[in-house]
Structures are given as structure tokens and as C-alpha cells.
Design a protein around this nucleic acid. Structure first.
Length: 356
DNA sequence: TACCGCGATTCCATATCACT
DNA sequence: AGTGATATGGAATCGCGGTA
């Protein structure tokens, strides 16, 4: 296969539309048939929608044939609207990236104005796809009631805990989603490393044809300075990293200074920060660098290229930018050229907003 | 009317699968 | 192991609708 991505390129609604068409034909049909029913050609874009439907766990695609999954049928045959929404949520969170985003912003405001930048910088989403993926996430998240009007992301683990008893009705048949496998009763559940969730995900395979390979997490997700600048936890991301990520959390001491008021004021922020240092990950995935060592974005791994500034450990060369506006109130600490890229990206977005 | 943004389409590249 | 078919992502381009 070509380089595979673990996020859908199109919206959840379009993916659902295709799945419904397939279901209308008896749960299995040719791609061409589905395209014809939607008055479309079997083009790259249509295949992108199919790919999204597969990534959402609504369809399986094999040899020009599309088949609806058990998850789709669960949604379709939900007892009531509430249950339907629960299963829609499960489907929406099927792409690991979307689960990661929800965990990262749980109980916090999603920076919708620069989600695409964050996807680009932090989640390994290609630049050409970033805006589309961001839009797909926002629209889908609103649809499944994960994102409210104030752009606050719900705690998916808590939602899952609340919905536990109801789901047992059909649990025997259907696979668990990634976030369902996580013990939802305490805060640490949200940071369960993927290797712990894997067995559950593996148990999924074969039950509905949903490939567990989608559990793949882009390797170049890092404890990005974007997160640091916004005071976001990168716990779940770091969990996924291997020993190549010894630059993780290279700025722990500076993190606190980066927390902008908008996030620092959120109720969960105080408990998130300590979690980062209490990560059980340290025992599961030994990190070559001490916990106290400052974390660094990619550029900090090349000290030779930055002989003058001395990296994040030299606090005497520090600038800050405070930007506030509609839906935005943040403070950027500029300590290395990498931070300038972020500031530039943010300013570009503002420029685009102003020139509309 | 020109420009812009967005979605759709086409074509190409490439990894994987299935078959011999 | 080699080869062709298949599946899927990426890039370029096109077409349409909205707006100044």
C-alpha cells in the first residue's frame, strides 16, 4: 500500500451517506453501484469517501465490494436516538487520530481557529489535508455531540463510563472501540498507553472486518511546542512514542509559563499537568533521558544548528506574544525559531480572517 | 466580470495481495 | 521469487457558486 494515513479525509456525514447506500442494497454492493446510486463517478474523491467510511468503521472494502459493518448496523438499528448517537460517537472515534484529539482536549476548548495548524504540526497530518481533516473533525464532533457550542470537547472516557450498561445489550456481537477498551473510571484511564489497549483492539479484528491496523498512530507526533504553548497535555501522544522520542517533555519547567489563561482557567488543567510527570509510561517504555530533562521539538535535536540560543534551557532569550480576539486568547512564548513558525502560522490565520 | 474558495475529477505513484 | 492486479494516497486541474 502507499503510505497509509489513519485519519479520514472527508466528513463523517459523507462517509455515512455512502454506508447508507450500501446498506440500501442489502449491506453489500460494488463501489460502482454505490457511486451510481449517489450520482457520482468512481473517482479519487469518491474513493476518499469510501476510505473515510472504512476508517470510521462503517464499511469494509474488499475487491471493489463494499460491505457494511456490525457497527453500522448497530447504529442503523439502534433502539432509540440516544443509543444511535452513542454508536455514531463510537464510529466517529474509530480513527485513532480523532480519539487522540478528543483525549488531548478533553473538557477543554478546542482551538477550532487553528486546529488545522495543530493537526499539521502535531498529528502528522499532511498540509494539504489539514484543513479538510480539521473541518471533518469539527463537523463530525458536533454531530455526535462531542463538541458543544462553546467548542468544549467532552470527556469521551467519561461518556463511555456513563453509557456502559446500555451497550451491553449488543456487546457480544460488536467490537469495542479504542476508547472503550480503556478503563474509564479514573483519570489515568485516559492516558492508557496504546499497547495496553491493543489486545482489545486486536480482539476486534475479524468480528466485523474492521482492521486493527487503524490503531496505528503517526510516529512523528511529538510533544509539540504547539501543545506546550497552549498548555495542552501530550500524555497520550508520548505514550505512543518509542525510544526515538527521547526529546519528549524537554520543556517541562517552561510548560507552566506557556499555559495561556484560556486553558489555565479550565477545571481540568491543574490535574492534567501533574499527570504528565506521573506517567506510568516511564516504567513501560524506558526513556533514555531523565524525566527532568527538558523536552525539545525537532529543531532542538540539532544543537549544532542552533549554537547561539542554547535551546529551551536558556531562558534569558525569550519573547512573548499575547494575542486575543474572537475565540482566541493566547500567549506565545518565543524561545526558538520553531516557535516563530507557530506564531507566523497563527498570524497568517488572523490575516486571512481579517481579509475576508 | 474577475477573483476566490471549495469540492470533484483525473492521473500518477507505490505498497500489498494473489497467483503462478 | 517474480509478476500482474488491486487499493489507496498525493498532486494537479477543472468546474461551479459566491462575492466584490
Amino acid at each position: 500500500m502507499p503510505k497509509t494515513i489513519d485519519y479520514p479525509r472527508t466528513s463523517y456525514t459523507s462517509a455515512w451517506e455512502v454506508a447508507e447506500v450500501v446498506d440500501d442494497t442489502g449491506g453489500k454492493c460494488a463501489i460502482e453501484t454505490a457511486a451510481r446510486k449517489l450520482n457520482r463517478k468512481v473517482s479519487g474523491s469518491f474513493k476518499a469517501i469510501i476510505g473515510s467510511a472504512v476508517k470510521f468503521g462503517l464499511l469494509t472494502s474488499k475487491r471493489e465490494f463494499l460491505t457494511t459493518t456490525n457497527l453500522f448496523r448497530r447504529i442503523k438499528h439502534a433502539y432509540d436516538k440516544q443509543e444511535e448517537r452513542i454508536y455514531h460517537r463510537e464510529a466517529f472515534l474509530h480513527p485513532p487520530l480523532f480519539t487522540q484529539i478528543c483525549r488531548k482536549f478533553r473538557n477543554r476548548e478546542l482551538p477550532v481557529h487553528m486546529l488545522d495548524v495543530m493537526l499539521l504540526r502535531e498529528f502528522g497530518v499532511e498540509e494539504i489535508n489539514a484543513q479538510g481533516v480539521a473541518k471533518a473533525f469539527i463537523d463530525g464532533a458536533r454531530m455526535v455531540a462531542i463538541l458543544d457550542e462553546q467548542n468544549i470537547i467532552a470527556d469521551i472516557d467519561q461518556l463511555d463510563a456513563q453509557q456502559g450498561p446500555r451497550k451491553e445489550l449488543s456487546n457480544s456481537e460488536m467490537p469495542l472501540n479504542l476508547f472503550k477498551g480503556v478503563p474509564p473510571t479514573n483519570a489515568s484511564a485516559a492516558i492508557t498507553p496504546p499497547e495496553q489497549r491493543l489486545p482489545l483492539a486486536q480482539a476486534d479484528s475479524g468480528t466485523n472486518g474492521i482492521s486493527t491496523s487503524q490503531d496505528f498512530v503517526p510516529p512523528h507526533r511529538t510533544s509539540d511546542p504547539v501543545s506546550n504553548l497552549f498548555g495542552l497535555d501530550t500524555d497520550d501522544l508520548e505514550d505512543d512514542k518509542e525510544d526515538t522520542n527521547d526529546f519528549q517533555s524537554t520543556r517541562p519547567t517552561s510548560n507552566a509559563r506557556f499555559v495561556p489563561p484560556v486553558f489555565a482557567a479550565t477545571p481540568t488543567a491543574p490535574e492534567e499537568a501533574p499527570v504528565a510527570s506521573q506517567q506510568p509510561v516511564a516504567t513501560q517504555q524506558p526513556v533514555s533521558t531523565p524525566v527532568t530533562k527538558a523536552s525539545a521539538p525537532e529543531m532542538l535535536q540539532k544543537p549544532s544548528s542552533r549554537p547561539i540560543t542554547g535551546g529551551a534551557t536558556t531562558p534569558n532569550l525569550s519573547y512573548s506574544i499575547h494575542i486575543s480576539g474572537p475565540g482566541l486568547d493566547t500567549r506565545l512564548e518565543i524561545q526558538d525559531p520553531e516557535d516563530l513558525l507557530l506564531a507566523s502560522a497563527l498570524l497568517d490565520k488572523i490575516r486571512r480572517q481579517l481579509t475576508r
